[in-house]
Design a binder for these strands. Sequence first.
DNA 1: CCCCCATGCTTGTATCTGCAACTATTTGCT
DNA 2: AGCAAATAGTTGCAGATACAAGCATGGGGG
Lengths: 188, 188
Amino acid sequence: MSTTELTRPERVAVARLQAMLELLPTALDRELAPAGLTAFEYTLLEALAEADEHRLRLSALAARTNASLPRLSRVVTGLERKHLVTRTPCPADARATNAVLTPSGLRTYRDSRPLHAAAVRGMVLDALDAADVDDLARLTLAILTRLDPRGRLTVTGDAASAACAADPAASPEQCPADPPACPADPAA
Amino acid sequence: MSTTELTRPERVAVARLQAMLELLPTALDRELAPAGLTAFEYTLLEALAEADEHRLRLSALAARTNASLPRLSRVVTGLERKHLVTRTPCPADARATNAVLTPSGLRTYRDSRPLHAAAVRGMVLDALDAADVDDLARLTLAILTRLDPRGRLTVTGDAASAACAADPAASPEQCPADPPACPADPAA
DNA sequence: CCCCCATGCTTGTATCTGCAACTATTTGCT
DNA sequence: AGCAAATAGTTGCAGATACAAGCATGGGGG
């Protein structure tokens, strides 16, 4: 196992992985297009819908969705233009901004869920049985642990923390909550 | 297994897959940056280096790399600007254009291989054992078969054809060769 | 109390990508 | 032949992203 040459099974796996990396994101976006959303926008709405008060700091949202802050900022601007979210300043920290799901945004998210589920089923899950799904979860976790955007995964090194960063769908509220979770209700 | 709701293991697997889809491509590009290449450019050079006479029609190149023709055209233009490939008209079909690897391009590809291998190892393979690699190959094939860019995979439906389209690294010369492989040497 | 640095976010710029429209060439049908 | 449809590539245009720079606020030492 030299450091330069890959074995044949490795080359096969990597080539297929690369093909999937090339095809899956654009295919997902196309299937979600009827809802007027990109896959990434859907992910944002999902994160907000699951969040307490439907409200999350931009940096927290960026961390959960593995997006850079510049990117997130612009996408949120786009969602604001569509009246699906609003920006509200954080009373506790004037630097921070909360993204808040509007009623319309929540409705859009809920309306899009079946479409999203169908897309994911049609392109990924229908090709796999239950054991395959477990394998997929295992392999992706192993790979994600090595990708480690900043120290979010390896700082602690424990599987729970890794699973948290990788699985916004699993149990988002039990995560360490990167920032101390900005106060939610300024009007109360 | 209703058509709307996903099970929890499914959500976990999908969330991790999505995270990987978000992080892996940009991470690969960053690791390959020292070579002055994007991951996609490297893939193109690899395909040409493995091709007969280091020469491939643009449409064949696009098919092998799962890229759209417009995208490929522009990237090839970029590689031409760097003197890594040249465009040569196909004598047999005046519509077609061959991309040909220059000596400099071949050198660049060979020089970049260790860097690419190290990147792939560091971000993917080192996280997996031999059995995991097999699982990865199996899962990605299953998913790719359902993605099916045009009918390239399912037209025949047999595993060999699917493997061919998904595995340029496996045995590119045994593939059906989408176009009849344009004549190579106009000067001979 | 003030200065320095870290944090949170936004924006300018360059590049990339997809889609659609367009040109040129080949193929098939009559 | 002659014309319609398919194929091969290129390009205009709009939208998206990364990187770097910039701006404002917060948190500590001196």
